[in-house]
Design a protein around this nucleic acid. Structure first.
Lengths: 217, 217
DNA sequence: TATATAATATACTCGTGAGTATATTTAGGG
DNA sequence: CCCTAAATATACTCACGAGTATATTATATA
């Protein structure tokens, strides 16, 4: 393996990379660096896919070698897991935001969906969506599944509350939550940074469908 | 590499495997065998993921060695592509089915969505959904993208026709098609063979959402 | 029945990538 | 200013998996 692999760094990588740049004042803040590793991994995973991204790649982008990466994370799987967790946190933040609101369930659902879509279009969101059980050890797979189900539970709860407060029509709670989550998760598959619509705009259009349906009124 | 790797065959594999079983009358029908290779690959990819499935695995399931697999397909990428193509064909069959129908666009869309969901829950459907550009050569990636867009075009067309014939409300054609396709594609991520609801039942619930929306009428 | 061709197997190569043993540098605390 | 611990690098190992060169067996046809 070539030392200090000469990786092509995008402008967007510069901010994180600067932490190691020879010029910079190398305040070694373990936590900051760890986060930079995770952030860089997320970006790389999203760009090339988990399996097509080696730890050498990630190290290269950071201007560092593989053992350094291992100094901050246990292994590749954990790296994916951390990215996943960050993505999940973004989504859960949406739920927290409306947690103590007095708004109708319908309004709260709107907000959650919008935040959800924003999260999904981020690097971490991609990881959160793509963290496949198949790529994880049984233990980690269980954990991921468990955590993912928080989103599902949150959506179902809003749908249930909507049926109670009358702001949403009664429907199959589970399948409706799956359909909505699926539509949003899928954004990660097609969204590119040059997409003309913002995540919020996409969410608004999706909400139009979920709210009103396609049948003329 | 161990010769004739002792792979655990599921009951469902038996039918395809029988083509090579010593007892069977070995009518060597190239096309049949090729299809068995592709079918077996699809099942394995879905079960363990594309990257976690080796050609030795696939050969093993078929009671055969790797060069035999190569006798029927160029390489692993092409194997995925064939699976993708089979999945796509299932979906496009839904569009063909309603092609010359005099039904309203709304009714036709219902049928297409139902067929689409059925296709997605199959092994080929999984491959169709998961065939990521990241795993394919540039040329193949282009081809896959091109073919996938047929689904999108088909959906948009129905949505457009619905606006014309009055059976569907006017909406953002592109984003609506994306939302619907996303919701359905996502089924591949969570559907398991022990799922209590059939694909058609899932589709019916999804259609309920897409048709009527969540806002009480 | 001999021969060409298809189908399959054996036994490799070769690259790549995760992970590590060990050395070296850097920085802070005594 | 020295000494310990953290941070990083060098230089590996090792397994695995795609793909192949080559032999062997079966089958169809002349």
């Amino acid at each position: 393996m070539a030392s200090r692999p000469t990786a092509k760094k995008s402008a967007a990588d510069a901010a994180t990379t600067a932490l190691w740049s020879p010029a910079a004042s190398r305040v070694r803040d373990r936590e900051r660096k760890r986060e930079a590793v995770i952030q860089t991994a997320a970006r790389a995973f999203r760009a090339r896919g988990y399996h097509n991204t080696s730890l050498d790649d990630i190290a290269g982008i950071l201007n560092v070698t593989k053992p350094t990466v291992y100094h901050y994370v246990e292994n590749k799987e954990q790296l994916l897991f951390e990215c996943f967790r960050a993505g999940l946190a973004l989504i859960m933040a949406g739920f927290d935001e409306v947690g103590d609101s007095t708004k109708s369930a319908r309004e709260r659902l709107s907000i959650v969906i919008s935040r959800y879509a924003e999260a999904i279009t981020s690097d971490f969101g991609w990881c959160m969506v793509q963290a496949e059980n198949q790529d994880l050890s049984p233990a980690m797979s269980r954990k991921v599944k468990e955590l993912k189900s928080e989103i599902d539970q949150g959506l179902r709860r809003l749908i249930r509350e909507g049926a109670r407060d009358g702001s949403l029509r009664k429907c199959d709670e589970k399948m409706t939550a799956f359909a909505i989550a699926g539509a949003i998760n899928w954004i990660a598959h097609w969204y590119r940074d040059d997409e003309p619509l913002s995540a919020a705009q996409i969410a608004a259009r999706y909400l139009d469908l979920f709210d009103l349906g396609l049948q003329p009124r």
